[in-house]
């Protein structure tokens, strides 16, 4: 069966899998971003810098764990289906966002925070007006790698019943049907590229201008 024939015959199914993949991604990204940034904010509070440093080294090492290992562990402890897949995506996606946000906030120069406090910023103002805006490029870098990782991991998570475009790739591999495989691979690749570009644009948009100017 050739590629075009396959696409025209399974048009609706492909669209459905695409949407499924996208929503799997979107839901996991929103959760990881919120939870990840919250954890980073907590871990970088004044006096907790050591927790922050530990988190940076732990997440730094955890990035070396292959995504399939996390999926496998979730399979063992939670089981099969969509919820386990989402859990795996969230757990694995949290790693880069926490790593980046925590190290980003920790690297905001001490004197800027001191100046802010000395001028009468409240703790909240120090966080939202100084730490976060200055760390935005690094945090956005984390969100971008998390997004890429979630889309990629979602493909693999189809082995534990996560659904999405991974279904096509696994079916294609197992049944040796190149057309199916290509559609799954190409669509997930395109989706990843488009989403990364959108996030790169958002990054550009929300990075404070003063951090971008040249001397």
């Amino acid at each position: 069966m050739n590629l075009f024939q396959y696409i025209s015959e399974n048009y609706n199914k492909i669209i459905d899998l695409c949407m499924e993949h996208f929503f799997l991604f979107l839901f996991s990204l929103i959760i990881t971003t919120i939870v990840g940034i919250a954890i980073s904010i907590f871990a970088t509070e004044e006096g907790k810098e050591n927790i922050g440093k530990i988190i940076v080294s732990v997440t730094g090492a955890a990035q070396a764990v292959p995504s399939i290992a996390v999926i496998a562990l979730v399979f063992i402890f939670v089981g099969i289906g969509k919820p386990p897949a989402i859990i795996a995506l969230i757990v694995y996606g949290l790693v880069p966002i926490i790593f980046n946000s925590t190290s980003g906030i920790l690297s905001v120069p001490r004197e800027i925070i001191e100046a802010g406090k000395g001028m009468g910023f409240t703790k909240r103002q120090v966080l939202w007006k100084l730490k976060i805006p200055i760390a935005i490029p690094v945090i956005m870098g984390g969100i971008r790698s998390t997004a890429t990782i979630i889309i990629g991991t979602a493909v693999i998570a189809s082995v534990i019943g996560g659904g999405g475009l991974g279904d096509l790739i696994f079916v294609g591999l197992k049944l040796n049907r190149p057309s199916v495989l290509i559609v799954g691979a190409a669509l997930s690749a395109i989706m990843a590229i488009i989403i990364d570009h959108i996030l790169a644009y958002i990054e550009k948009l929300i990075t404070p201008k003063g951090l971008k100017v040249k001397r």
Binding site: I169, A192, I193
Partner: peptide, 11 residues
């Protein structure tokens, strides 16, 4: 780098 590794592998 943004392409899912399994997708690249499949291709």
């Amino acid at each position: 780098m943004t392409i899912p590794s399994l997708a690249l592998f499949g291709l």
